[in-house]
Design a protein around this nucleic acid. Structure first.
Lengths: 111, 111
DNA sequence: CTTCAAGTACGACTTGCATCGTACCTGAAG
DNA sequence: CTTCAGGTACGATGCAAGTCGTACTTGAAG
């Protein structure tokens, strides 16, 4: 089974502080909002999020999300897959992902 | 007019980023967890939270919570009251306060 | 009035974190 | 093999944020 190659915390070990810290950043939150909104939960590429930051910084942000237990990173060598850990998050923090969709009332200008 | 003396954002203007940033700090989150757990929603004193930090830093943290729209601060001159804005938070971000109670399974050792 | 405790304002210090530059690794395509 | 794009590792930098020291304000108690 091509599970998660890169290690993240177990479902029961998710820390609320790490989660809030991860979601405090605008870029990371936009990624999580996209993942939470897409109910298909399909594996996505790293550059499918259109982040206005450099590659190194993207690597940093995805690492933070993974270490917080929010996503899985599947390493293919020269390519990487991103997948939301929806079941684990919902089990540990039910309703959290729904909050991401209820962000700004009308505008989405991240600024 | 014993409302809120110090200004905070309206219920509809609560920003998810500011909320997550406010809850990212251990001390502020412990305060919010206490407030969210106490269903009486009674007004509390600032020093009733037993924070291991100086007065000036407490002032700073309560200001952040107020500017995020999470609490009201009632100024009595030489005394200050803290009250959770439960209705506004639940209206804007339903389920958020429930997450605070589901923090760590058993321990709250910050460091 | 004076005294005192609670809280704030301002500033300084220190840590954390987001960001990027350079160099290196990996796998696919020629 | 070489080339190239995607990704990572390490280090440096700049800014935001947490913390506290000093001084000031406020209201109650004496």
């Amino acid at each position: 089974m091509a599970g998660r190659n890169l290690d993240g915390p177990e479902a029961d070990a998710l820390d609320l502080g790490a989660v809030f810290r991860a979601l405090a950043d605008e870029h990371r939150r936009s990624v999580m909002t996209e993942l939470a909104t897409d109910r298909s939960d399909s594996e996505r590429g790293c550059n499918s999020f259109d982040l206005p930051i450099s590659k190194q910084t993207q690597t940093h942000h995805f690492r933070v999300l993974r270490e917080a237990g929010l996503i899985d990173e599947i390493d293919y060598g020269n390519r990487k897959g991103i997948r939301l850990r929806r079941a684990d998050i919902e089990k540990r923090f039910p309703g959290l992902l729904a909050l991401l969709g209820a962000g700004p009332p009308a505008d989405t200008a991240p600024r």
